[in-house]
Design a protein around this nucleic acid. Structure first.
Length: 414
RNA sequence: GCCGGGAUGGGGUAGCUUGGUUAUCCUAGGGGACUGUGGAUCCCUUGACUCGGGUUCAAAUCUCGGUCCCGGCCCCA
């Protein structure tokens, strides 16, 4: 038997209906914020991703030569494609651009809970300016989406890449050595970071201060301990978010990103119920367009791990009820099937979701099927009714039945 | 890539330690009984040992390897 490739999934109708429902909530929320949906190719030139993330990602993406000897990669994320699209086709559009996307991404990684090789991201990019309003808009959208989905247990943490960068800069650390330090700090591996810093001639008390800053977590009052531009910026951001009724965020200066193009705030959301892969959203402000040949433009964006957030919702016990059809048409005998077909067709053209027995089942089995497909009503078509230009309408939840003229049927069902 | 645990009809399972008749039970699918009314009952029926090699008279069971799944590590743009 042929199975799904490692790390991929089939989605059956019940699951697909559930996914579409939650997708629609995310889309609706983004549209409410004035964002507009875009779509980019599933595969891109490999260079797009190595330009953004460095040559090492080749080990973790699906990259190959196509028949024209082009280097192609399945997209592992969507920020780079969106910025490519911006540079190619949207650089003269009025700013800000507020774009969102939903689609699958591919990474060649070992699958585990909440991590697949084909997974779905819902994200947004706000292109135009580097200011607190822009960042607030992005974070508020992310928070609103998480809330709108109905997730109860989650945590949003906001940091600023500038705080640590300035500290490291002032400590005399060269720019090209920063990533390795930041990587250790991100994971709070102080025992490994200290020798590196000592090796770079950083004083002990400066090191202690750097470590202390990465431990800074809490409300905006924790920023009082720091007096620099980044801290002031974060205060401004938190104030705007509070006005927008986004209060469930905390400052965490230990949220760090190693890559150069991050320019300011960074934020993450996690669902504690998920275990090892608990991050459900990640984002920040960045400057990428110049890497793809465009002018330098500041952006803020984020991506939500759709599969993970659905997993978290499931763990919280959120039940999703699949919808059934409105009407199931039941022919009583074979000789009335043409009449039944005519009736189901009439219902459908009036936008009533209607199904009909096509298995040539006997009436009792057809009734069973009607409850199987969760029909609200069974429309029973038989000789007795047809003689009076009528059908019997049965309410499947109560069992109440009544005769209805065919000419009144649509109205009686609406 | 590393460590560990798994895989038995569509779904859920028993059997595996100690190899031995026709692989257990529940559920689901198709048909029927109840000759024009669903969720019930009964009958018939469909359908599985993850794949490949090895040991053996004999393998679901022991053994080696592959594949996939699960938990964790690495990574997480």
């Amino acid at each position: 038997m042929i199975q799904c490739p490692r790390g991929t999934r089939d989605f059956l109708p019940d699951e697909m209906e559930r996914r579409r429902y939650y997708e629609s909530i995310l889309r609706k929320t983004a549209v409410t914020f004035g964002f507009r949906e875009i779509s980019t190719p599933i595969f891109e030139e490999t260079e797009l991703f190595t330009t953004r993330s460095g040559p090492n990602i080749l080990n973790e993406i699906y990259a190959f030569k196509d028949k024209g000897d082009r280097d192609i990669a399945l997209r592992p994320e969507l920020t780079a494609p969106v910025m490519r699209m911006f540079v190619n086709s949207m650089s003269n559009e009025p700013r800000p651009l507020k774009l969102f996307y939903y689609g699958q991404c591919f990474r060649y990684e070992r699958p585990q809970s909440g991590r697949y090789r084909e997974f779905f991201q819902f994200g947004a990019e706000l292109i135009g300016n580097a200011n607190a309003e822009t960042d607030a808009e992005a974070i508020a959208l992310a928070a609103s989406m998480i809330r709108a989905l109905g997730l109860k247990e989650y945590k949003i943490r906001i940091g600023h890449i500038g705080v640590l960068r300035d500290l490291l800069n002032n400590a005399g650390i060269a720019k090209d050595r920063m990533p390795e330090i930041l990587q250790k700090l991100d994971k709070k591996l102080y025992d490994e970071a200290r020798p590196l810093l000592i090796d770079m001639n950083v004083d002990d008390d400066v090191i202690d201060n750097i470590f202390k800053i990465t431990e800074t977590v809490g409300g905006k009052e924790v920023l009082d301990l720091i007096s620099d531009e980044a801290a002031a910026y974060l205060k401004e951001l938190i104030d705007i978010l509070a006005v927008m009724d986004v209060n469930d965020v905390e400052i965490d200066l230990g949220v760090v990103r190693g890559l150069d193009y991050y320019t300011g705030i960074v934020f993450e959301a996690e669902a504690p119920s998920l275990g090892a892969e608990k991050q459900i959203c990640g984002g920040g402000s960045y400057s990428l367009s110049e890497l793809f040949g465009g002018e330098k433009v500041f952006s803020t964006g984020f991506a939500i791990g759709f599969d993970r957030i659905l997993l978290a919702l499931e763990k919280e016990g959120g039940k999703f009820e699949n919808k059934g059809v409105d009407v199931y048409v039941v022919p009583v005998s074979d000789d009335v099937r043409p009449d039944a077909a005519k009736i189901v067709s009439m219902l459908r053209s009036n936008e009533i979701i209607a199904d009909i027995d096509i298995m040539r089942r006997k009436m009792a089995k057809a009734m069973k099927q009607a409850s199987e497909v969760k029909a609200k009503y069974a429309v029973i078509v038989g000789k007795n009714e047809l003689n009076e230009n009528s059908v019997t309408v049965r309410d499947m939840s109560t069992g109440d039945q009544k005769m209805v003229k065919i000419s009144d049927l649509v109205r009686s069902l609406k």
